[in-house]
Design a protein around this nucleic acid. Structure first.
Lengths: 106, 106
DNA sequence: CAGTATCCGCAGTGATACTG
DNA sequence: CAGTATCACTGCGGATACTG
């Protein structure tokens, strides 16, 4: 199974490559609630550097999970939202969230 | 949300901490089919070092996801199988697998 | 505001050799 | 057979400064 010139053992590995990044699932989770500006995301992920946040967003964008809308104005304004593909992972994230809670709450 | 003295943003992060490791989901996936000896796993994951494989298995064991049965004999024999907790993640893995396949097959 | 660019430390990983 | 132990290296990610 090939994606972006890399081989994957099965679909699970692909999924983890897309949402398994350090902050990606959380980003997708938050964007599912609402469209957010970069500064909004910075506030939510205050323990992350701009660099990391940008990088994760760029990868999600490259995978077609998020849409990046740039308003050509000064000062700049950039909004991030989920694409259709990005929304399609949400049921799985919800289950992962529930499983994780149950796992800890024992 | 605390687990093993580490804070997690939400259940998703916990789940990824448990199954998101480089080979963990694949290990859980294969063990779901059948109990395997260490050498069986080595064959399946031929591109992984013994060290990595051992480490991932130890972490899965510490999280109560796999059971490690040692046969006290020479030469040694060690069998790995899923615990109840380990089996409980399987539905999610199946969905991740399906999602990943759909993601690539476009 | 929303990013790049650059440098750097160190944890994670690999290679190799050894052991009960 | 099923692991440890040790060393060396790479590259992820943090800190900081700069830019359109």
């Amino acid at each position: 199974m090939i994606y972006r010139e890399k081989g994957y053992r099965c679909g699970i590995d692909v999924t983890l490559a897309v949402v398994g990044g350090k902050w990606k699932s959380s980003i997708l989770w938050h964007l599912a609630q609402e469209t957010m500006r970069f500064s909004d995301l910075q506030r939510q992920f205050s323990d992350t550097t701009r660099k990391m946040l940008t990088q994760q967003l760029r990868e999600l964008e490259a995978d077609g999970m998020v849409h990046r809308k740039v308003y050509p104005q000064v000062p700049p304004k950039v909004e991030y939202s989920l694409t259709e593909k990005g929304r399609s992972i949400h049921p799985i994230l919800e289950q992962m969230c529930a499983w994780g809670k149950a796992f800890v709450g024992e």
